[in-house]
């Protein structure tokens, strides 16, 4: 599992490779907060290479969403597979996040 960060225009894109669970959520949180501290405002987390997310991972996304919004920024999500989509629907977090089918659509939505 790893997180890679790249920049596409003004958007910081984070790819989550593997799982986003209790054992690695802090790593993702820190990486995004570091970028936020540098002054970045637009964030996209791409889950196209993600296996599954647990409640801790969902909690970190909620936390990041709050912190980014507090700094006047935006967080968008993209490429949820069927399992992840179900997870977001079950927890109703699909109503909290702006979720796109593809990275391109997400990037265009900023």
């Amino acid at each position: 599992m790893s997180f890679s960060i790249s920049k596409q225009g003004e958007v910081v894109v984070v790819d989550v490779e593997g799982q986003l669970i209790v054992g690695n959520r802090q790593e993702l949180k820190q990486k995004v907060l570091d970028e936020l501290e540098k002054g970045e405002k637009k964030f996209l987390i791409d889950f196209s290479q993600t296996g599954y997310i647990d409640s801790s991972g969902l909690g970190v996304l909620v936390s990041l969403s709050k912190k980014i919004r507090e700094q006047g920024g935006e967080l968008r999500l993209a490429n949820l597979n069927d399992d992840l989509q179900t997870l977001f629907e079950l927890t109703k977090l699909d109503t909290l996040f702006q979720i796109s089918d593809t990275r391109e659509r997400a990037l265009e939505s900023f």
Binding site: S55, G59, S63, K66, T91
Partner: peptide
Amino acid sequence: TKPENLMMEDGRGLFL
């Protein structure tokens, strides 16, 4: 899943 709890960072484990 209640609107007032959606922003909670914890508390989804048992629910899931």
